[in-house]
């Protein structure tokens, strides 16, 4: 791939984004009705900057970075635990066909449940807390990743295990030197595609129950009839989600890049 063709998606993507922003700013400057519902970035950014990038009323106002950290912590803790637990469960299940037959129906029944559906249960069980949010993310990702792990383990060429055993690796060494690296890229791809679901689940949880986080910014904007705050919250959520997706994409392509 030449440098020009590598740069083309970035240049075109940036140009299209700038066009949308330009149209948005122009519509507000032209006094179109849409600007009252969708204030342009120059407006809501100025308002938020005036408050020193702090969200909340009076002494209870907290920096935006705190909301960002709270949301990220919830999403990544939930996803990290789910990722590790799914690989462990998948690996253990792969050792026994009977165990797989017993557990599989449960996995396939629970996997399609959207993480948002777990919000009421999580709040009842854990109360309004970080644990509830982490639990929601976990439930939204764990079952899908466990199924993916099982499927990835089945895809490993039997020769890999034969070679490792033949060269002297014990069953445990075969797990962490062969099975684990062989399944990591496939499971990670699914983790990345499930990030959006986990991200949305936490935001909804923050909107309906938890008092901080990026979702709570939007709810505060709604309660105060403050469109600037709502739009600012939406932009922060969009940009953070985009950055995380790029980071996960980088990990997928550069760190766990191999395909079995």
């Amino acid at each position: 791939m030449t440098n020009a063709s590598k740069a083309a998606p970035i240049v075109l993507g940036t140009l299209s984004l700038l066009t949308v922003l330009g149209l948005w700013e122009w519509s507000a400057a032209a006094g179109l009705a849409v600007s009252t519902v969708l204030p342009p970035p120059s407006q809501f950014m100025a308002v938020v900057a005036e408050s020193g990038f702090r969200i909340g009323m009076g002494s209870q106002a907290s920096p935006i970075s705190q909301s960002l950290v709270s949301t990220f912590l919830r999403v990544f803790t939930g996803m990290g635990i789910a990722f590790a637990a799914a690989i462990l469960t998948g690996a253990l299940l792969s050792l026994s066909r009977v165990a797989t037959w017993c557990i599989s129906p449960l996995l396939y029944l629970l996997a399609p449940i959207a993480p948002i559906a777990w919000i009421p249960t999580a709040i009842v069980v854990f109360g309004i807390s970080n644990t509830a949010a982490i639990f929601i993310v976990f439930m939204g990702v764990y079952f899908v990743l466990t199924i993916a792990t099982l499927s990835e383990i089945r895809r490993i060429p039997p020769e890999f295990h034969t070679v490792a055993a033949n060269l002297g690796a014990s069953p445990f060494e075969r797990f962490y030197r062969v099975t684990l690296p062989a399944i990591l890229p496939g499971v990670f791809v699914l983790l990345r595609s499930n990030f959006t679901a986990a991200w949305m689940a936490v935001l909804v949880a923050e909107m309906v129950g938890l008092r901080d986080g990026l979702g709570a910014i939007i709810m505060m904007g709604r309660n105060l009839f403050n469109n600037d705050l709502i739009l600012f919250g939406m932009v922060i959520i969009g940009v953070s989600g985009f950055v995380v997706d790029r980071v996960l994409n980088f990990i997928s392509n550069r760190i766990v890049w191999w395909r079995v």
């Binding site: 060429p157 890999f160 034969t162 070679v163 033949n166 060269l167 062969v178 690296p181 395909r259």
Partner: peptide
């Protein structure tokens, strides 16, 4: 199997990572 007798296959011999 024993490390004293090692087998080489037609394919899938090397670990891609």
């Amino acid at each position: 199997p024993t490390p004293e007798i090692v087998m080489i296959f037609q394919e899938n011999n090397l670990f891609p990572w």
